[in-house]
């Protein structure tokens, strides 16, 4: 069976891989590129645990084919910190106990970072609706929403 050769950019690095036509971008990230930070919770776009950015757009990587990444830029949780410097969202998720089991955390962080880039001053309601596609079963969302709002305020203050 011949596989598809894809050239793309992942977390700033040029990457190429072979994938089968039915492989999702999530399959490629996890199984081919060993970037297991993106999680598969449903494989149907309902839980958001596999959230990544493709050309800056927030998507469920389980709903994108690996072949579709050709010529695009993909950003995953693994690219969020710069070296050993965490993004303020990552820092606040630790310090404000915004995670319990942590399985939804990568997807939520990717989504929240994307929100703050588009809207540095979101209301609580805006954060709740932006993250409505990211399921968390442990926290009841309370501390997640607070961590995102606090980070937004902190980043506005720092800017």
């Amino acid at each position: 069976m011949s596989r598809i050769h894809v050239n793309t950019t992942v977390n700033g690095d040029a990457v190429d891989y072979l994938c089968e036509a039915e492989d999702t971008l999530l399959d490629v990230l996890r199984d081919t590129l060993d970037l297991t930070g993106s999680k598969e919770g449903c494989a149907s776009g309902d839980c958001g645990a596999c959230s990544v950015l493709v050309d800056g757009r927030l998507v469920c990587s389980c709903l994108v084919l690996g072949a579709e990444a050709e010529g695009r830029t993909v950003e995953t949780i693994e690219g969020m910190a710069e070296g050993d410097t965490l993004h303020p969202l990552q820092k606040n998720f630790i310090n404000k106990a915004a995670l319990q089991c942590g399985i939804c955390t990568p997807g939520i962080l990717v989504a929240a970072k994307n929100l703050l880039e588009k809207n540095p001053d979101p209301s609580e309601e805006e954060v709740r609706y932006w993250l409505a596609g990211n399921l968390c079963r442990c926290t009841g969302y309370d501390k997640i929403i607070r961590a995102v709002l606090d980070t937004a305020a902190e980043m506005r203050g720092a800017a």
Binding site: L35, T36, S38, I77, L99, G102, T105
Partner: peptide, 14 residues
């Protein structure tokens, strides 16, 4: 915490 916010934590399927 650090493992879980950076995607390094290893879950069952990882």
């Amino acid at each position: 915490g650090l493992d879980k916010v950076t995607g390094r934590a290893r879950y069952g399927a990882d």
